[in-house]
Design a protein around this nucleic acid. Structure first.
Lengths: 243, 243
DNA sequence: CGGATCGTTGACAGGTATCAATGCTGGTGG
DNA sequence: CCACCAGCATTGATACCTGTCAACGATCCG
Protein backbone atom coordinates (compact mmCIF):
# COMPACT_ATOMS: atom_id res chain seq x y z
CA UNK A 1 0.00 0.00 0.00
CA UNK A 2 2.14 2.81 -1.27
CA UNK A 3 1.37 6.48 -0.92
CA UNK A 4 -0.85 8.47 -3.22
CA UNK A 5 -0.84 12.19 -3.77
CA UNK A 6 -3.61 14.60 -4.54
CA UNK A 7 -2.54 16.92 -7.30
CA UNK A 8 -5.49 19.24 -7.69
CA UNK A 9 -8.95 19.71 -6.39
CA UNK A 10 -11.34 22.33 -7.49
CA UNK A 11 -14.91 23.28 -6.95
CA UNK A 12 -17.19 22.25 -9.74
CA UNK A 13 -15.69 20.97 -12.93
CA UNK A 14 -14.73 23.98 -14.99
CA UNK A 15 -11.52 22.22 -15.89
CA UNK A 16 -13.28 19.05 -17.04
CA UNK A 17 -14.44 21.00 -20.07
CA UNK A 18 -10.87 21.45 -21.18
CA UNK A 19 -9.56 18.09 -20.03
CA UNK A 20 -7.06 16.67 -22.48
CA UNK A 21 -8.74 13.28 -22.55
CA UNK A 22 -12.26 14.63 -22.37
CA UNK A 23 -13.37 12.75 -25.46
CA UNK A 24 -12.75 9.40 -23.84
CA UNK A 25 -14.18 10.02 -20.40
CA UNK A 26 -17.55 10.03 -18.79
CA UNK A 27 -18.29 13.67 -19.48
CA UNK A 28 -17.64 13.27 -23.18
CA UNK A 29 -20.90 14.57 -24.57
CA UNK A 30 -22.06 16.95 -21.92
CA UNK A 31 -23.04 20.44 -22.98
CA UNK A 32 -21.84 23.70 -21.49
CA UNK A 33 -25.06 23.85 -19.51
CA UNK A 34 -24.50 20.40 -18.14
CA UNK A 35 -21.11 21.37 -16.78
CA UNK A 36 -22.66 24.14 -14.78
CA UNK A 37 -24.58 21.53 -12.87
CA UNK A 38 -21.38 20.10 -11.45
CA UNK A 39 -20.94 21.68 -8.07
CA UNK A 40 -18.91 19.35 -5.95
CA UNK A 41 -15.13 19.27 -6.10
CA UNK A 42 -13.52 16.82 -8.46
CA UNK A 43 -9.97 16.01 -7.52
CA UNK A 44 -7.15 14.53 -9.49
CA UNK A 45 -5.17 11.83 -7.75
CA UNK A 46 -1.81 10.27 -8.57
CA UNK A 47 -1.36 6.69 -7.49
CA UNK A 48 1.97 4.92 -7.24
CA UNK A 49 2.24 1.31 -8.33
CA UNK A 50 0.48 -0.98 -5.85
CA UNK A 51 -1.37 1.74 -4.03
CA UNK A 52 -5.01 1.02 -3.29
CA UNK A 53 -7.71 3.25 -4.75
CA UNK A 54 -10.46 1.65 -2.69
CA UNK A 55 -11.09 -1.51 -0.76
CA UNK A 56 -13.56 -4.24 -1.47
CA UNK A 57 -16.70 -3.67 0.65
CA UNK A 58 -15.82 0.00 1.24
CA UNK A 59 -18.84 2.22 0.98
CA UNK A 60 -17.76 5.53 -0.44
CA UNK A 61 -19.56 7.99 -2.59
CA UNK A 62 -17.07 8.37 -5.37
CA UNK A 63 -16.47 6.98 -8.80
CA UNK A 64 -13.12 7.36 -10.51
CA UNK A 65 -12.17 8.06 -14.09
CA UNK A 66 -8.81 6.67 -15.14
CA UNK A 67 -6.69 9.35 -16.81
CA UNK A 68 -3.61 7.24 -17.39
CA UNK A 69 -2.03 4.02 -16.17
CA UNK A 70 -3.86 0.87 -15.25
CA UNK A 71 -6.05 -0.29 -12.37
CA UNK A 72 -6.60 -3.95 -11.49
CA UNK A 73 -9.85 -5.04 -9.88
CA UNK A 74 -9.03 -7.61 -7.23
CA UNK A 75 -11.65 -9.90 -5.80
CA UNK A 76 -10.51 -11.32 -2.47
CA UNK A 77 -11.86 -14.64 -1.34
CA UNK A 78 -12.62 -15.77 2.15
CA UNK A 79 -9.74 -18.26 2.16
CA UNK A 80 -7.16 -15.55 1.58
CA UNK A 81 -6.55 -16.13 -2.10
CA UNK A 82 -7.57 -13.62 -4.70
CA UNK A 83 -8.49 -13.27 -8.30
CA UNK A 84 -8.09 -10.34 -10.68
CA UNK A 85 -11.44 -9.89 -12.38
CA UNK A 86 -10.79 -6.87 -14.52
CA UNK A 87 -8.33 -4.26 -15.76
CA UNK A 88 -9.25 -0.61 -16.23
CA UNK A 89 -7.44 1.86 -18.45
CA UNK A 90 -7.69 5.40 -19.77
CA UNK A 91 -11.29 6.51 -20.00
CA UNK A 92 -12.65 3.64 -17.95
CA UNK A 93 -14.70 4.19 -14.85
CA UNK A 94 -13.82 2.55 -11.54
CA UNK A 95 -16.34 1.93 -8.80
CA UNK A 96 -19.57 2.45 -10.72
CA UNK A 97 -21.20 0.34 -8.02
CA UNK A 98 -21.10 3.43 -5.82
CA UNK A 99 -23.81 4.98 -7.99
CA UNK A 100 -26.26 2.56 -6.46
CA UNK A 101 -25.03 3.31 -3.00
CA UNK A 102 -23.66 -0.15 -2.59
CA UNK A 103 -20.23 -1.28 -1.51
CA UNK A 104 -17.45 -1.70 -4.02
CA UNK A 105 -17.46 -5.16 -5.51
CA UNK A 106 -13.71 -5.43 -5.64
CA UNK A 107 -10.56 -3.85 -4.37
CA UNK A 108 -9.00 -1.45 -6.89
CA UNK A 109 -5.20 -1.33 -7.05
CA UNK A 110 -2.83 0.58 -9.35
CA UNK A 111 -0.79 -1.79 -11.49
CA UNK A 112 1.45 1.02 -12.65
CA UNK A 113 1.75 4.65 -11.72
CA UNK A 114 -1.76 5.80 -12.42
CA UNK A 115 -3.69 9.04 -12.46
CA UNK A 116 -7.41 9.22 -11.75
CA UNK A 117 -10.16 11.79 -11.25
CA UNK A 118 -12.28 11.37 -8.16
CA UNK A 119 -15.90 12.24 -8.90
CA UNK A 120 -18.56 12.56 -6.20
CA UNK A 121 -21.55 10.37 -6.89
CA UNK A 122 -23.77 13.33 -6.14
CA UNK A 123 -22.50 15.10 -9.23
CA UNK A 124 -23.53 12.18 -11.35
CA UNK A 125 -26.98 12.07 -9.84
CA UNK A 126 -27.48 15.78 -10.31
CA UNK A 127 -26.60 15.47 -13.95
CA UNK A 128 -28.84 12.48 -14.37
CA UNK A 129 -31.85 14.38 -13.12
CA UNK A 130 -31.35 17.31 -15.41
CA UNK A 131 -30.04 15.72 -18.54
CA UNK A 132 -29.95 12.33 -20.14
CA UNK A 133 -26.59 12.71 -21.80
CA UNK A 134 -24.79 11.10 -18.95
CA UNK A 135 -27.04 8.10 -18.60
CA UNK A 136 -26.04 7.00 -22.07
CA UNK A 137 -22.35 7.17 -21.22
CA UNK A 138 -22.94 5.32 -17.99
CA UNK A 139 -24.72 2.51 -19.73
CA UNK A 140 -21.89 2.29 -22.23
CA UNK A 141 -19.47 1.84 -19.32
CA UNK A 142 -21.54 -0.86 -17.73
CA UNK A 143 -21.66 -2.64 -21.00
CA UNK A 144 -17.95 -2.34 -21.51
CA UNK A 145 -17.42 -3.85 -18.09
CA UNK A 146 -19.73 -6.67 -19.01
CA UNK A 147 -18.00 -7.54 -22.25
CA UNK A 148 -14.70 -7.45 -20.42
CA UNK A 149 -16.04 -9.98 -17.96
CA UNK A 150 -17.00 -12.12 -20.90
CA UNK A 151 -13.48 -12.00 -22.25
CA UNK A 152 -12.20 -12.98 -18.87
CA UNK A 153 -14.54 -15.94 -18.69
CA UNK A 154 -14.02 -17.15 -22.21
CA UNK A 155 -10.42 -16.30 -23.02
CA UNK A 156 -8.70 -16.25 -19.69
CA UNK A 157 -10.18 -19.24 -17.92
CA UNK A 158 -10.41 -21.79 -20.72
CA UNK A 159 -7.80 -23.74 -22.64
CA UNK A 160 -4.51 -24.83 -21.18
CA UNK A 161 -2.12 -22.56 -19.34
CA UNK A 162 0.11 -21.75 -22.31
CA UNK A 163 -2.87 -20.72 -24.38
CA UNK A 164 -4.17 -18.48 -21.62
CA UNK A 165 -0.85 -16.73 -21.16
CA UNK A 166 -0.62 -16.23 -24.92
CA UNK A 167 -4.10 -14.69 -25.01
CA UNK A 168 -3.29 -12.46 -22.07
CA UNK A 169 -0.13 -11.16 -23.74
CA UNK A 170 -2.03 -10.41 -26.93
CA UNK A 171 -4.71 -8.64 -24.91
CA UNK A 172 -2.17 -6.54 -23.06
CA UNK A 173 -0.20 -5.70 -26.19
CA UNK A 174 -3.28 -4.50 -28.02
CA UNK A 175 -3.83 -1.77 -25.48
CA UNK A 176 -0.56 -0.04 -26.25
CA UNK A 177 0.14 1.58 -29.55
CA UNK A 178 3.92 1.65 -29.18
CA UNK A 179 4.31 -2.11 -29.10
CA UNK A 180 5.61 -2.01 -25.56
CA UNK A 181 3.29 -2.90 -22.73
CA UNK A 182 3.32 -3.51 -19.01
CA UNK A 183 4.05 -7.11 -18.11
CA UNK A 184 2.36 -8.02 -14.80
CA UNK A 185 4.15 -9.88 -12.04
CA UNK A 186 3.92 -13.65 -12.15
CA UNK A 187 1.62 -13.52 -9.15
CA UNK A 188 -0.74 -11.20 -10.97
CA UNK A 189 -0.63 -13.28 -14.13
CA UNK A 190 -1.59 -16.24 -11.99
CA UNK A 191 -4.48 -14.33 -10.42
CA UNK A 192 -5.61 -13.16 -13.85
CA UNK A 193 -5.63 -16.60 -15.42
CA UNK A 194 -6.47 -18.84 -12.49
CA UNK A 195 -3.14 -20.64 -12.66
CA UNK A 196 -0.29 -20.80 -10.15
CA UNK A 197 2.63 -18.42 -10.01
CA UNK A 198 5.02 -21.20 -10.95
CA UNK A 199 3.09 -22.21 -14.04
CA UNK A 200 2.91 -18.58 -15.12
CA UNK A 201 6.63 -18.21 -14.59
CA UNK A 202 7.48 -21.34 -16.53
CA UNK A 203 5.48 -20.25 -19.54
CA UNK A 204 6.74 -16.68 -19.53
CA UNK A 205 10.29 -18.00 -19.28
CA UNK A 206 9.68 -20.34 -22.17
CA UNK A 207 8.27 -17.53 -24.31
CA UNK A 208 11.41 -15.53 -23.60
CA UNK A 209 13.68 -18.41 -24.49
CA UNK A 210 11.88 -18.97 -27.76
CA UNK A 211 11.97 -15.23 -28.47
CA UNK A 212 8.23 -14.81 -28.57
CA UNK A 213 8.42 -12.36 -25.70
CA UNK A 214 11.06 -9.71 -25.05
CA UNK A 215 11.13 -7.81 -21.82
CA UNK A 216 13.18 -5.79 -19.42
CA UNK A 217 11.50 -6.01 -16.06
CA UNK A 218 7.96 -4.87 -16.55
CA UNK A 219 8.36 -3.42 -20.01
CA UNK A 220 7.62 -5.98 -22.66
CA UNK A 221 7.06 -6.54 -26.35
CA UNK A 222 5.77 -9.58 -28.20
CA UNK A 223 6.12 -11.25 -31.55
CA UNK A 224 2.44 -11.15 -32.30
CA UNK A 225 2.52 -13.40 -35.33
CA UNK A 226 4.32 -16.23 -33.56
CA UNK A 227 2.11 -15.83 -30.51
CA UNK A 228 -1.03 -16.21 -32.56
CA UNK A 229 0.55 -19.18 -34.23
CA UNK A 230 1.08 -20.77 -30.84
CA UNK A 231 -2.59 -20.39 -29.94
CA UNK A 232 -3.61 -21.78 -33.30
CA UNK A 233 -1.27 -24.75 -32.93
CA UNK A 234 -2.56 -25.66 -29.49
CA UNK A 235 -6.18 -25.55 -30.63
CA UNK A 236 -5.51 -27.64 -33.68
CA UNK A 237 -2.93 -29.97 -32.21
CA UNK A 238 -5.25 -32.97 -32.05
CA UNK A 239 -6.24 -34.37 -35.46
CA UNK A 240 -9.13 -32.53 -37.15
CA UNK A 241 -11.79 -32.72 -34.46
CA UNK A 242 -14.42 -30.02 -34.65
CA UNK A 243 -14.64 -29.58 -30.94
CA UNK B 1 -34.19 -24.75 -31.16
CA UNK B 2 -37.64 -25.56 -29.97
CA UNK B 3 -40.72 -23.47 -30.63
CA UNK B 4 -41.82 -20.51 -28.62
CA UNK B 5 -45.27 -19.05 -28.39
CA UNK B 6 -46.48 -15.53 -28.01
CA UNK B 7 -49.18 -15.38 -25.41
CA UNK B 8 -50.23 -11.78 -25.36
CA UNK B 9 -49.27 -8.51 -26.89
CA UNK B 10 -50.84 -5.21 -26.14
CA UNK B 11 -50.27 -1.62 -26.98
CA UNK B 12 -48.64 0.33 -24.23
CA UNK B 13 -48.18 -1.26 -20.88
CA UNK B 14 -51.41 -0.83 -18.98
CA UNK B 15 -51.08 -4.39 -17.79
CA UNK B 16 -47.57 -3.88 -16.48
CA UNK B 17 -49.08 -1.79 -13.70
CA UNK B 18 -50.90 -4.84 -12.44
CA UNK B 19 -48.25 -7.39 -13.23
CA UNK B 20 -48.03 -10.02 -10.51
CA UNK B 21 -44.25 -9.76 -10.28
CA UNK B 22 -44.15 -6.03 -10.81
CA UNK B 23 -42.13 -5.42 -7.64
CA UNK B 24 -39.22 -7.38 -8.93
CA UNK B 25 -39.05 -6.15 -12.48
CA UNK B 26 -37.70 -3.18 -14.32
CA UNK B 27 -40.79 -1.05 -13.96
CA UNK B 28 -40.87 -1.49 -10.23
CA UNK B 29 -40.88 2.12 -9.12
CA UNK B 30 -42.54 3.87 -12.02
CA UNK B 31 -45.42 6.18 -11.31
CA UNK B 32 -48.83 6.19 -12.99
CA UNK B 33 -47.61 9.02 -15.19
CA UNK B 34 -44.57 7.07 -16.22
CA UNK B 35 -46.69 4.22 -17.42
CA UNK B 36 -48.53 6.53 -19.75
CA UNK B 37 -45.28 7.12 -21.55
CA UNK B 38 -45.12 3.52 -22.66
CA UNK B 39 -46.53 3.44 -26.13
CA UNK B 40 -45.08 0.50 -27.94
CA UNK B 41 -46.46 -3.00 -27.53
CA UNK B 42 -44.96 -5.20 -24.87
CA UNK B 43 -45.53 -8.88 -25.51
CA UNK B 44 -45.35 -11.87 -23.26
CA UNK B 45 -43.52 -14.86 -24.67
CA UNK B 46 -43.40 -18.48 -23.50
CA UNK B 47 -40.22 -20.34 -24.26
CA UNK B 48 -39.85 -24.10 -24.17
CA UNK B 49 -36.68 -25.61 -22.80
CA UNK B 50 -33.76 -25.06 -25.18
CA UNK B 51 -35.49 -22.48 -27.32
CA UNK B 52 -33.39 -19.49 -28.22
CA UNK B 53 -34.48 -16.02 -27.13
CA UNK B 54 -31.86 -14.25 -29.21
CA UNK B 55 -28.59 -15.04 -30.92
CA UNK B 56 -25.16 -13.72 -30.09
CA UNK B 57 -24.39 -10.80 -32.46
CA UNK B 58 -28.07 -10.28 -33.31
CA UNK B 59 -28.97 -6.63 -33.42
CA UNK B 60 -32.53 -6.26 -32.19
CA UNK B 61 -34.22 -3.47 -30.38
CA UNK B 62 -35.64 -5.40 -27.48
CA UNK B 63 -34.77 -6.19 -23.93
CA UNK B 64 -36.48 -8.98 -22.04
CA UNK B 65 -37.70 -9.28 -18.48
CA UNK B 66 -37.73 -12.81 -17.12
CA UNK B 67 -41.10 -13.61 -15.55
CA UNK B 68 -40.37 -17.19 -14.61
CA UNK B 69 -37.95 -19.95 -15.46
CA UNK B 70 -34.28 -19.56 -16.24
CA UNK B 71 -32.23 -18.23 -19.16
CA UNK B 72 -28.61 -19.16 -19.77
CA UNK B 73 -26.28 -16.74 -21.49
CA UNK B 74 -24.07 -18.70 -23.85
CA UNK B 75 -20.89 -17.25 -25.25
CA UNK B 76 -19.84 -19.11 -28.39
CA UNK B 77 -16.20 -19.19 -29.34
CA UNK B 78 -14.70 -19.20 -32.78
CA UNK B 79 -13.47 -22.77 -32.41
CA UNK B 80 -16.97 -24.10 -31.90
CA UNK B 81 -16.86 -24.59 -28.16
CA UNK B 82 -18.94 -22.50 -25.84
CA UNK B 83 -19.11 -21.22 -22.32
CA UNK B 84 -22.09 -20.29 -20.17
CA UNK B 85 -21.31 -16.89 -18.71
CA UNK B 86 -24.47 -16.17 -16.78
CA UNK B 87 -27.88 -17.33 -15.60
CA UNK B 88 -30.91 -15.07 -15.47
CA UNK B 89 -34.00 -15.60 -13.36
CA UNK B 90 -37.24 -13.94 -12.33
CA UNK B 91 -36.91 -10.17 -12.43
CA UNK B 92 -33.61 -10.19 -14.32
CA UNK B 93 -33.21 -8.33 -17.56
CA UNK B 94 -31.84 -10.05 -20.67
CA UNK B 95 -30.16 -8.21 -23.50
CA UNK B 96 -29.51 -4.86 -21.83
CA UNK B 97 -26.80 -4.40 -24.46
CA UNK B 98 -29.58 -3.52 -26.88
CA UNK B 99 -30.08 -0.24 -25.02
CA UNK B 100 -26.83 0.98 -26.49
CA UNK B 101 -27.81 -0.15 -29.94
CA UNK B 102 -25.12 -2.77 -29.97
CA UNK B 103 -25.35 -6.46 -30.73
CA UNK B 104 -26.14 -8.96 -28.03
CA UNK B 105 -23.02 -10.14 -26.27
CA UNK B 106 -24.21 -13.71 -25.90
CA UNK B 107 -26.83 -16.11 -27.09
CA UNK B 108 -29.78 -16.43 -24.69
CA UNK B 109 -31.35 -19.86 -24.31
CA UNK B 110 -34.11 -21.13 -22.02
CA UNK B 111 -32.82 -23.71 -19.58
CA UNK B 112 -36.32 -24.61 -18.50
CA UNK B 113 -39.74 -23.60 -19.71
CA UNK B 114 -39.52 -19.88 -19.32
CA UNK B 115 -41.76 -16.88 -19.67
CA UNK B 116 -40.47 -13.43 -20.62
CA UNK B 117 -41.75 -9.97 -21.50
CA UNK B 118 -40.38 -8.43 -24.66
CA UNK B 119 -39.86 -4.72 -24.22
CA UNK B 120 -38.98 -2.37 -27.10
CA UNK B 121 -35.86 -0.38 -26.41
CA UNK B 122 -37.69 2.73 -27.55
CA UNK B 123 -39.99 2.49 -24.54
CA UNK B 124 -37.01 2.53 -22.24
CA UNK B 125 -35.49 5.53 -23.94
CA UNK B 126 -38.74 7.45 -23.81
CA UNK B 127 -39.00 6.82 -20.12
CA UNK B 128 -35.40 7.79 -19.57
CA UNK B 129 -35.92 11.17 -21.16
CA UNK B 130 -38.96 12.02 -19.09
CA UNK B 131 -38.14 10.49 -15.78
CA UNK B 132 -35.13 9.26 -13.90
CA UNK B 133 -36.88 6.45 -12.07
CA UNK B 134 -35.92 3.92 -14.66
CA UNK B 135 -32.28 4.83 -14.90
CA UNK B 136 -31.84 3.79 -11.31
CA UNK B 137 -33.35 0.38 -11.94
CA UNK B 138 -31.26 -0.04 -15.04
CA UNK B 139 -28.08 0.68 -13.18
CA UNK B 140 -29.09 -1.80 -10.53
CA UNK B 141 -29.47 -4.46 -13.24
CA UNK B 142 -26.08 -3.71 -14.72
CA UNK B 143 -24.57 -4.00 -11.32
CA UNK B 144 -26.29 -7.27 -10.64
CA UNK B 145 -24.90 -8.60 -13.88
CA UNK B 146 -21.48 -7.48 -12.86
CA UNK B 147 -21.52 -9.11 -9.48
CA UNK B 148 -22.76 -12.29 -11.12
CA UNK B 149 -19.76 -12.20 -13.43
CA UNK B 150 -17.60 -11.88 -10.37
CA UNK B 151 -19.12 -14.97 -8.86
CA UNK B 152 -18.52 -16.82 -12.07
CA UNK B 153 -14.88 -15.75 -12.15
CA UNK B 154 -14.14 -16.40 -8.53
CA UNK B 155 -16.32 -19.34 -7.57
CA UNK B 156 -16.85 -21.18 -10.81
CA UNK B 157 -13.44 -21.08 -12.39
CA UNK B 158 -11.14 -21.61 -9.43
CA UNK B 159 -10.44 -24.58 -7.22
CA UNK B 160 -10.62 -28.15 -8.39
CA UNK B 161 -13.53 -29.67 -10.22
CA UNK B 162 -15.27 -31.14 -7.19
CA UNK B 163 -15.18 -27.82 -5.41
CA UNK B 164 -16.63 -26.04 -8.41
CA UNK B 165 -19.48 -28.48 -8.79
CA UNK B 166 -20.20 -28.17 -5.09
CA UNK B 167 -20.30 -24.38 -5.32
CA UNK B 168 -22.54 -24.54 -8.35
CA UNK B 169 -25.00 -26.81 -6.59
CA UNK B 170 -25.14 -24.50 -3.60
CA UNK B 171 -25.64 -21.54 -5.91
CA UNK B 172 -28.47 -23.25 -7.74
CA UNK B 173 -30.13 -24.48 -4.58
CA UNK B 174 -30.16 -21.01 -3.06
CA UNK B 175 -32.36 -19.72 -5.83
CA UNK B 176 -35.23 -21.99 -4.96
CA UNK B 177 -37.12 -21.76 -1.74
CA UNK B 178 -38.60 -25.22 -1.88
CA UNK B 179 -35.30 -27.02 -1.66
CA UNK B 180 -35.72 -28.47 -5.11
CA UNK B 181 -33.90 -26.93 -8.00
CA UNK B 182 -33.19 -27.52 -11.66
CA UNK B 183 -30.09 -29.63 -12.23
CA UNK B 184 -28.47 -28.70 -15.55
CA UNK B 185 -27.32 -31.30 -18.05
CA UNK B 186 -23.73 -32.51 -17.69
CA UNK B 187 -22.85 -30.60 -20.82
CA UNK B 188 -24.16 -27.39 -19.34
CA UNK B 189 -22.43 -28.00 -16.04
CA UNK B 190 -19.24 -28.41 -18.01
CA UNK B 191 -19.81 -25.17 -19.89
CA UNK B 192 -20.64 -23.39 -16.65
CA UNK B 193 -17.53 -24.53 -14.82
CA UNK B 194 -14.98 -24.87 -17.62
CA UNK B 195 -14.61 -28.59 -17.09
CA UNK B 196 -15.44 -31.51 -19.38
CA UNK B 197 -18.75 -33.31 -19.51
CA UNK B 198 -17.13 -36.47 -18.23
CA UNK B 199 -15.60 -34.80 -15.21
CA UNK B 200 -18.94 -33.17 -14.41
CA UNK B 201 -20.67 -36.52 -14.72
CA UNK B 202 -18.17 -38.32 -12.50
CA UNK B 203 -18.57 -35.78 -9.73
CA UNK B 204 -22.35 -35.60 -9.92
CA UNK B 205 -22.46 -39.39 -9.85
CA UNK B 206 -20.20 -39.45 -6.83
CA UNK B 207 -22.35 -36.91 -5.01
CA UNK B 208 -25.35 -39.11 -5.67
CA UNK B 209 -23.60 -42.22 -4.43
CA UNK B 210 -22.55 -40.47 -1.24
CA UNK B 211 -26.05 -39.07 -0.81
CA UNK B 212 -25.05 -35.47 -0.97
CA UNK B 213 -27.25 -34.99 -4.00
CA UNK B 214 -30.67 -36.45 -4.67
CA UNK B 215 -32.30 -36.08 -8.02
CA UNK B 216 -34.86 -37.44 -10.40
CA UNK B 217 -33.89 -36.28 -13.87
CA UNK B 218 -33.57 -32.54 -13.71
CA UNK B 219 -35.23 -32.06 -10.35
CA UNK B 220 -32.69 -32.10 -7.56
CA UNK B 221 -32.13 -31.49 -3.89
CA UNK B 222 -28.91 -31.26 -1.89
CA UNK B 223 -27.67 -31.92 1.58
CA UNK B 224 -26.40 -28.42 2.09
CA UNK B 225 -24.48 -29.09 5.27
CA UNK B 226 -22.50 -31.97 3.84
CA UNK B 227 -21.87 -30.05 0.63
CA UNK B 228 -20.42 -27.11 2.51
CA UNK B 229 -18.36 -29.55 4.51
CA UNK B 230 -16.94 -30.94 1.26
CA UNK B 231 -15.83 -27.50 0.13
CA UNK B 232 -14.33 -26.81 3.51
CA UNK B 233 -12.48 -30.13 3.50
CA UNK B 234 -10.97 -29.56 0.08
CA UNK B 235 -9.74 -26.11 0.98
CA UNK B 236 -8.23 -27.25 4.25
CA UNK B 237 -7.05 -30.65 3.17
CA UNK B 238 -3.38 -29.69 3.17
CA UNK B 239 -1.93 -29.04 6.65
CA UNK B 240 -2.65 -25.56 8.03
CA UNK B 241 -1.31 -23.37 5.24
CA UNK B 242 -2.88 -19.94 5.07
CA UNK B 243 -2.97 -19.80 1.29
C1' DC C 1 -38.44 -52.92 -30.85
C1' DG C 2 -34.66 -50.16 -32.63
C1' DG C 3 -32.37 -45.76 -32.46
C1' DA C 4 -31.01 -41.46 -30.60
C1' DT C 5 -29.54 -38.92 -26.80
C1' DC C 6 -27.61 -38.41 -22.52
C1' DG C 7 -25.26 -40.12 -18.49
C1' DT C 8 -21.84 -43.21 -16.47
C1' DT C 9 -17.57 -45.51 -16.06
C1' DG C 10 -12.77 -47.14 -17.20
C1' DA C 11 -7.89 -46.70 -18.74
C1' DC C 12 -4.44 -43.81 -19.74
C1' DA C 13 -1.55 -39.83 -20.80
C1' DG C 14 -0.52 -35.27 -20.22
C1' DG C 15 -0.90 -31.03 -17.71
C1' DT C 16 -0.69 -28.54 -13.60
C1' DA C 17 -0.33 -27.92 -8.55
C1' DT C 18 2.68 -28.57 -4.95
C1' DC C 19 6.87 -28.39 -2.42
C1' DA C 20 11.44 -27.07 -2.37
C1' DA C 21 15.76 -25.06 -3.76
C1' DT C 22 18.32 -21.71 -6.24
C1' DG C 23 19.18 -17.49 -9.00
C1' DC C 24 18.54 -12.66 -9.74
C1' DT C 25 17.88 -7.70 -8.69
C1' DG C 26 17.19 -3.51 -6.34
C1' DG C 27 17.33 -1.24 -2.06
C1' DT C 28 19.36 -0.40 2.43
C1' DG C 29 22.60 0.62 5.72
C1' DG C 30 27.25 0.38 7.25
C1' DC D 1 31.11 1.83 -2.43
C1' DC D 2 30.05 -2.63 -1.15
C1' DA D 3 27.77 -6.41 1.36
C1' DC D 4 23.68 -8.05 2.66
C1' DC D 5 18.82 -8.84 2.58
C1' DA D 6 14.13 -9.22 0.93
C1' DG D 7 11.28 -10.06 -2.71
C1' DC D 8 10.44 -11.95 -7.00
C1' DA D 9 11.48 -15.13 -10.81
C1' DT D 10 13.11 -19.46 -12.25
C1' DT D 11 13.69 -24.31 -12.24
C1' DG D 12 13.30 -29.24 -10.79
C1' DA D 13 10.91 -33.50 -8.97
C1' DT D 14 6.79 -35.56 -8.02
C1' DA D 15 1.97 -36.67 -7.28
C1' DC D 16 -2.49 -35.73 -8.43
C1' DC D 17 -6.07 -34.17 -11.22
C1' DT D 18 -8.46 -33.83 -15.30
C1' DG D 19 -8.84 -34.21 -20.37
C1' DT D 20 -9.16 -37.63 -23.82
C1' DC D 21 -10.81 -41.65 -26.05
C1' DA D 22 -13.71 -45.39 -25.82
C1' DA D 23 -17.27 -48.46 -24.33
C1' DC D 24 -21.45 -49.34 -22.10
C1' DG D 25 -25.95 -48.40 -19.74
C1' DA D 26 -30.33 -45.92 -19.17
C1' DT D 27 -34.17 -43.55 -20.85
C1' DC D 28 -37.35 -41.72 -24.06
C1' DC D 29 -39.68 -41.74 -28.42
C1' DG D 30 -41.50 -43.03 -32.57
Amino acid sequence: MKPSSIKHAWAGAEKCQHCSIKESVLFADLTQDDFHLLHLPISEIDLKTDSVLYEQTDINNFVYTIRSGCIKLVHHLANGSYRIVGLLRQGDLAGIEALNGSAYLQQAVAMQDTSVCKIPVKNIHQLNHKSSHLCKQLMARWQKGQSQSDIWLTDFTTGNAKQRVAKLLLYLANYESEGFFYLPSRDDIGALLAITTETASRIIAEFRRTEILFNHRYTAKINEVRLKHIIYMIENDPPPSTK
